[in-house]
Design a protein around this nucleic acid. Structure first.
Lengths: 114, 114
DNA sequence: CGGTTGATAAACCGATGAGTTGAATATACG
DNA sequence: CGTATATTCAACTCATCGGTTTATCAACCG
């Protein structure tokens, strides 16, 4: 029942196997078998990971004969970068004026949950 | 058994209540009761969330009489920003040369998991 | 001292997550 | 057609998660 997109993306990235899959896809498209090869788990497990990544919008899959080619979709990562940037002032002295702080928060707030 | 720090931080951020807590702490320190007030769940549940955030290194807690003051610790968020930045070239035309691409990947790779 | 307040611990519950094995589906190939 | 290959579906297991309730610990206050 966790439907909010930000949570879905964070959850998808909370698994090292899935992050490694993304790292692989950053170098170019690949099929399920190709993606599964480096890992010590079954192809089915990788298929499930791909479902998670797809539901998070982080990849798209296209049919091609009996293969499913996977491509990385960077949009959610950009959204994430913006989310993290809300907090940039807290460690980065580039944000040292109130104006910049307020700009950085514009419309990027989290609701009080649920 | 998920011990790698990146996974721990992503998992901690995958919950909207915890992100809202961080958003609140970005505005300044707070006690557990103060943090719990806006939420429709028990103080104990919030206490658990704070444990998760603390284990992820996203907050630190200090004793102060019978209160536990919580403070946001932005270091893991900076790490996260760097992680996401690996992929910036994929959506951001600022990265349009091979040199910049290679720079952006320097030493930030994910291992093939486990 | 006893009571109140702030916070955590412990035990439990239902749901979800990551993995397995085994079967099914779909497409190409001889 | 029949078989091999690529992928997914289904059912199951085990662990973890987010929440609850009840109980405990710690510090202040009258």
């Amino acid at each position: 029942m966790t439907v909010d997109p930000v949570s879905t993306v964070f959850a998808a990235l909370a698994d090292p196997t899935r992050r490694a899959i993304l790292a692989r896809l950053a170098a170019g498209e690949a099929t399920v078998n190709e993606l599964a090869a480096p890992f010590p788990v079954s192809v089915q497990a990788i298929s499930k990971h791909l479902n998670v990544l797809e539901r998070a919008g982080l990849i798209v899959r296209t049919r091609e004969a009996q293969w499913r080619r996977c491509r990385l979709e960077p949009a959610p990562l950009r959204t994430l970068a913006e989310w993290v940037d809300q907090y940039r002032r807290l460690w980065d002295d580039r944000y040292d004026t109130l104006d910049e702080y307020l700009d950085s928060l514009k419309g990027k707030d989290d609701e009080p949950a649920q």
